[in-house]
Design a protein around this nucleic acid. Structure first.
Length: 216
DNA sequence: GCGACAG
DNA sequence: ATCTTGTCGC
């Protein structure tokens, strides 16, 4: 199917692709994680997308790619992937080494139709992916404990769609959810391991810096 | 009808 | 997301 241009078409694509989500963990012991992020120019017409692969043992960059493109889909909560995935897929294709698991900025299953950006990316690439959101899209939760590593389940009705994780002491928690070919527990552990110093995982920070720089 | 609403 | 002034803390 071709890339949707309208909201009804996008909803149809989500309804089709969501059946492809598999939560079986296919990356039990990854050596690297590839972070993804995008940035927009002030006018909101140009978009830059970056993919940065970090080694899990020292959090150093082992591969990176960045591309720029035009924004082709409006911002619509719940339909994020249709706006950000085209340039992200181009950036991923420009990587030198095959990614083991993707850390996305945004949600996976913590989505109104259980098919956020991380699910969509995972299904299209066939590679494990999880989401780390900075704010909530769906669900309710208790306040996680104050220590790094403390978390609370994110519940949408009675479905456990994600984990609200305190990555650093005294900072606002992040929203972790599985996307594809990974468990929520593993995604949460990876997110914590990637955040030894700042609220957001180093993968997200590295990709953020790279795509911002590509816009100047 | 009134809020809520990833980036 | 991006824009923006000031403030607090290491």
């Amino acid at each position: 199917m071709r890339w949707p241009a309208t909201i009804p078409e996008a909803l149809e694509v989500q309804a089709t692709l969501r059946a492809g989500v598999d939560l079986t963990d296919a990356c039990p012991d990854p050596a690297t994680v590839t972070g993804l992020d995008v940035a927009y120019d002030p006018a909101g017409e140009r978009i830059a997308a970056a993919a940065v692969t970090l080694s899990l043992d020292d959090l150093r960059i082992v591969d990176q790619a960045v591309v720029t493109g035009e924004v082709t889909f409006p911002y619509e909560p719940g339909l994020f992937a249709f706006r950000e995935l085209p340039p992200l897929l181009d950036a991923i294709a420009a990587l030198t080494r095959p990614p083991e698991v993707f850390a996305c900025d945004g949600h996976g299953l913590a989505h109104p139709r259980r098919f956020g950006l991380a699910c969509h990316l995972g299904v299209l690439t066939g590679t494990p992916a999880f989401g780390v959101g900075k704010t909530r899209l769906v669900g309710t939760h208790a306040e996680p404990g104050p220590a790094a590593g403390d978390s609370a389940p994110l519940l949408d009705g009675d479905t456990h769609v994600g984990e609200v994780l305190r990555t650093r002491p005294g900072v606002k928690p992040v929203y972790v959810s599985a996307g594809h070919l990974i468990s929520l527990d593993h995604a949460t552990r990876l997110t914590l391991a990637l955040s030894p110093r700042y609220r957001l995982p180093e993968t997200t920070r590295a990709a953020d810096h790279l795509c911002r720089a590509a816009l100047d």
